[in-house]
Design a protein around this nucleic acid. Structure first.
Lengths: 352, 352
DNA sequence: CTGAAAGCGCTTACAG
DNA sequence: CTGAAAGCGCTTACAG
């Protein structure tokens, strides 16, 4: 391979990447023509085209996307902001988004907010400075100021999983009411009348809506749901465990516990087993999301599948359509996928 | 907030971001001075500085990192290439890398290779076009051509978890020999003399070395390890399950199975339980990596902890040092962390 | 302490 | 079908 050295310090021999100028010079054409060929534009004599392509291959020419982005105002980059990539729901959807984006020639920059709004703000600023073409958020709070502003600025933007108050902007997610209702009814049908509920933080739509739906469904079925059976958990492990232990130490513990997501349900399972209860014999457990480990033979968690794959695919496809103007800019989409109850071994009839 | 509209199409009212030129004009100074202030460079009269900063804040000015990168030849971007972000080991290390990078003002672009070398090559090309300042690979094959070339080109680059043949370039990982030896000896000490081994693909250093160390240790302890007890698994779920089922259907199945990573061990556990065996009563199981779920109460997998957090921290710190020239460019580092055996409930004495 | 000017590597009308 | 030139938004010697 022919090398191009740093001409200001020829002795350092730091290899400088070839530019279009090099390609053009070696092919004996102008930069404009070389640019046309590299970008597959029409109107170039076949012989010229071949020559340029040959030189480019020879030099192993790679176009500088910074320079290109500066001119075209498009970077083919998408920012993906998630709460925590170690949560299987996020890593799974992030992977699908990344791969589908790549297939459409987009690159994804991932940011973890850790559910911290200051970090989220920093991430957004950084993504804007990098001129990403669009944003995906799986991390929004209901009253997420930075994301609202971003949407108002007209930037291509879509939220999934968690949405903004009033479903502002584009959103693709799951029908939380229906999912929770299905799971609650399942417990009711098995005979449970005292159910503990560990909710997620209510600043997130998922936390608020899953709790709300649980309370509504409980009322419909006349299931007891006194305050002391309802706990607001958090995404830190200890928080959930504290909630469970409080519930278990009640004079009359519930016969079932519904956790607002699978990761929390896994903690609930852990706690309940450690406290010496059997699952589902003594206590039934239900989760939400249907992450991969939920179906593992040793776990067998009854949970609600939210069609994460389909959701992620829709998200990236929709965003790319918005970016490429294939969809009216002002028009917002709100898609709710129907969730599906997965009944496994963690739920059973309560003991009499 | 003051808005700046697209002047070529004033009616479209697409908001154009402010530039240094706008800041300079409004502050009544030259672009050069504005640039100095924005970048915190010395040699500007305090009053001028204040004025510029005020205007920048007023306009909500965000520097264009594409333009900046073009001039400075630094993008403050790092490419992170992993095999599969849904594998907890990768998502955990990716998260740490991303967060530590952000703390040092670097942004991370993540690529999933899916263990496919063509995809890896595409990802590298893309990262090079985007002028990343450095590369991190957790995905290399032993004879990984594109990564070798990258290293030879002098680009700041570091591998972790999996390494190149002969530990080419910079590498931070775990001492596989020791880890496997610890786990094998643990099984030996419990009394196991027939042990099945499900290895990872041997094109990866982890796959090759864990297998090699298992065979060596077996020989040392005179543990039986006939070919039919050694299977090369893959990262697809079905592959592992096929291996396990083959082992279980032997006339005399082993009393323990050692899987080359926890994700595979989880599949082994699943299969073994489904086949009606009890763990560890009938069959002991050992994994490798110590992912979070391994310590779950329902899983309790005996495994080898590889200090993922420390590894990830070292990786990103080392790379940033290389990028910023705080470390001699030609000097390669090879760090092996001491792994630690975590004995849990999935291993016990074999039944007589 | 400040500014004019060159230039990073591209794309894109425009002219021929 | 091809090229000269302007310009994207910055930084950085250099001159004053």
């Amino acid at each position: 391979m022919i090398e191009r050295n740093c001409n200001s310090f020829p002795l350092i021999r730091k290899i400088m990447p070839y530019t279009l100028k090099d390609v053009a010079a070696l092919a004996g054409v102008s930069i404009a023509t070389a640019s046309r060929v590299i970008n597959g534009k029409p109107g170039v004599k076949p012989a010229t085209r071949t020559k340029i392509l040959d030189v480019a291959r020879e030099l192993n020419y790679l176009p500088d996307q910074l320079a290109k982005g500066m001119k075209t105002k498009r970077t083919n980059t998408i920012g993906l902001v998630v709460a925590d990539i170690t949560n299987p729901f996020y890593s799974y959807t992030a992977k699908i988004i990344e791969m589908k984006a790549r297939a459409h020639n987009y690159t994804v920059i991932v940011g973890n907010t850790n559910n911290n709004s200051t970090i989220e703000h920093d991430i957004i600023t950084n993504l804007r400075e990098r001129k990403v073409d669009g944003f995906i958020f799986a991390s929004v709070e209901l009253h997420d100021k930075p994301v609202r502003q971003l949407i108002q600025s007209g930037a291509p933007c879509i939220t999934y999983h968690r949405h903004l108050e009033g479903y502002q902007g584009n959103f693709i997610g799951s029908d939380e009411s229906e999912g929770v209702s299905l799971a609650t009814q399942h417990l009711y049908d098995l005979g449970h009348r005292r159910i503990g509920f560990i909710s997620g933080p209510r600043i997130f739509s998922t936390g608020r809506e899953r709790l709300r739906s649980f309370l509504e469904t409980s009322r419909t079925f006349a299931i007891e749901s006194p305050d002391y059976l309802i706990k607001e958990g958090g995404y830190e492990i200890t928080k959930t465990r504290t909630c469970v232990n409080e519930i278990l130490s009640l004079p009359e513990p519930p016969t079932a516990i519904f956790a607002a997501n699978d990761l929390m349900a896994l903690q609930v399972l852990d706690c309940v087993l450690e406290a010496g209860y059997r699952v589902p014999d003594d206590i039934s457990i239900v989760g939400y999301d249907d992450i991969a480990i939920a179906s593992h033979h040793s776990i067998q968690l009854t949970t609600v599948n939210v069609h994460a794959k389909q959701c992620a695919e829709l998200v990236i496809e929709t965003l790319i359509n918005i970016i490429e103007g294939l969809r009216p800019a002002g028009e917002h989409t709100k898609t709710l996928l129907k969730p599906e109850l997965k009944v496994r071994e963690s739920t059973a009839k309560p003991r009499k």
